[in-house]
């Protein structure tokens, strides 16, 4: 089990120099095993700093992080072992590819885990399937493939660790709509089939609203909102004040409300908007 528990987390960059900056402050929360969490916040709100604490890439200035009940900063060993439990896919992960072939690049993580060759092979094929990397590409150089393919290879490289928690920082940034949808679908099916916790950092509210079970909004290094999409998107004004977008369905519902057409319930997906509009129309006819 890999429940994540964060207590009183605070992080200061470049402490003691003129460039000192408090990135996150007073963050406490629990993410149970198997949840699909969307983390939102504008640039510099501390969300990237936060997720790097979850696998001990950054050490907190104050506070503690527990994964599966273990304080991950307890020693050098726990800091290393947590990397197998919490897989982190960085922003633009395609720039980390380096091996001669796609296969070897995906196998880099499992090989660092010192697994047997058969185990590595099994994991590479499984991860490639999840990330929709065609096995025909295995012997190609990752550097000569397209952007979307590269990104899926990089994601497969982390999935191959079989982490209990998968964190993705802006996994769809810079991809075309078809590429975005494909990657999100892959992530959702990975979440469903493996039962792992998945944390997605994203700017795209439509995607986040569609797939996440829970949304955590960061603002100025603190958790500003934390709840189900219904709860978070029922206060669109607050999100806009934080410099964030709202899902297109929500902004359309807000515009209708301004025009005098009141819709019922919290609206953040296209289906909900459609149903609410139909209900409102029926109510008028009667």
């Amino acid at each position: 089990m890999a429940e994540i528990k964060v207590e009183g987390l605070r992080h200061v960059y470049s402490a003691g120099t003129p460039f000192e900056k408090v990135a996150i402050e007073d963050v406490s929360l629990t993410i149970p095993q198997g949840q699909l969490v969307g983390v939102i916040g504008h640039t510099g709100s501390g969300k990237s700093t936060f997720i790097q604490h979850l696998n001990a890439l950054l050490q907190p200035t104050e506070g503690k992080v527990f994964v599966g009940g273990q304080d991950i900063n307890a020693s050098k060993y726990t800091r290393r072992d947590v990397k197998w439990q919490v897989g982190l896919v960085f922003q633009y992960p395609e720039y980390q590819l380096f091996e001669e072939t796609v296969y070897r690049d995906i196998a880099f993580g499992p090989r660092n885990m010192k697994l047997s060759d058969e185990e590595i092979d099994q994991r590479v094929r499984e991860a490639a399937k999840f990330a929709q990397v065609d096995e025909e590409l295995f012997e190609r150089s990752p550097l000569e493939l397209s952007g979307g393919q590269k990104r899926r290879i990089a994601i497969a490289g982390v999935i191959a660790l079989r982490p209990g928690v998968l964190i993705l920082d802006e996994p769809t940034a810079g991809l075309d709509p078809a590429g975005c949808r494909q990657i999100l679908d892959n992530i959702c099916s990975y979440h469903r089939e493996s039962g792992s916790t998945v944390i997605i950092v994203s700017h795209n509210m439509d995607d986040t609203a569609r797939i996440a079970e829970r949304i955590i909004a960061f603002d100025h290094g603190r958790v500003a909102m934390d709840g189900t999409p219904e709860q978070v998107f029922s206060e669109p004004e607050k999100l806009i004040a934080m410099g964030l977008d709202v899902p297109r369905a929500t902004s359309l519902a807000m515009a209708l409300k301004k025009a005098g057409i009141e819709l019922e319930g919290s609206i953040y997906t296209h289906g909900q908007l459609l149903n609410a509009v139909l209900r409102a129309k029926e109510a008028r006819v009667c």
Partner: peptide, 13 residues
């Protein structure tokens, strides 16, 4: 720094 972090996340030592 970024690349090192990314490779560390995949267990590079």
């Amino acid at each position: 720094d970024k690349i090192m972090s990314a490779q560390k996340a995949r267990g590079a030592d």
